[in-house]
Design a protein around this nucleic acid. Structure first.
Lengths: 128, 128
DNA sequence: CATGGCATTTACGTAAAAGTCAATTGCGCC
DNA sequence: GGCGCAATTGACTTTTACGTAAATGCCATG
């Protein structure tokens, strides 16, 4: 496991710009350490970026991603906070389960669409 | 099955604004018929809206949704077009499978996070 | 027939999530 | 110590997906 990654290493790995990484820092999603003014990304920062990209692909907004990231952190010490956290996690899971249903339905419809196309090709006498 | 739906019926059903439905029409996603100037939404239009909302929840942009919707339509008659269509469908399915992986990973991490919270509650002697 | 309630069009506004550009600044190296 | 390159900051711009306001049409109801 590497000690640190530079900003450009991460931009290459995740195919995003430096602007984007700095934007995520401004938004409080990541807090790379500094040597002088230069950002140094630890493995944990890199992992956060991975989680952010996942969230993006799933259509979550920055603030939703921020919420999710907070859920991955150490559980709070106070009972009320803990219960609230659990409630929030449950809500997000509800979100995700809805997305899963949407996903399966869409995949099923695309399967159907593809089959229609293939059938049509067969009708036209094309060797598949 | 109803003949027609009014715009407000659909806004209530899908919890979106009239502005949004008109916007989708401008974008060519739906083409409700007219009585005078008033839009009448057929069951097929309603189904399209349902598919649009699904796409939105999955984080697809309007133009991606437009592409997906075109895939649901009648397969084209020409062989080249058909093959192209099949290729595009395959690409979208790749997208969706990636999203599914992202989804499962996120769900797994949320499960973990919730368990940590529950454990913490037990440590604190709270009856769950 | 005027009032209320939807509906429509046109036009401008806006928030989120970056992209782009310019002007530095620091660092490794010869 | 000068060069070149990567990194930084800050300001401005852009795109997407609608929101909002203003002016007006259409029609049923009292």
């Amino acid at each position: 496991m590497r000690e640190y990654y530079t900003i450009t290493e991460l931009t290459r790995e995740f195919e995003i710009s430096t602007r984007t990484l700095r934007f995520y820092e401004d938004e409080g999603l990541i807090q790379p350490v500094r040597r002088g003014r230069t950002r140094l990304f630890r493995p944990s920062d890199r992992h956060l970026v991975k989680q952010i990209m996942r969230g993006k692909r799933l259509g979550f907004s920055i603030s939703e991603i921020r919420e999710i990231i907070q859920m991955y952190r150490e559980p709070p010490g106070e009972v009320g906070q803990l219960k609230l956290m659990i409630k929030r996690i449950e809500e997000k899971r509800g979100d995700l389960r809805q997305k899963r249903r949407d996903l399966e339905e869409t995949l099923a419809e695309l399967d159907q669409a593809e089959e229609s196309c293939v059938e049509r090709l067969v009708e036209l006498g094309v060797n598949t």
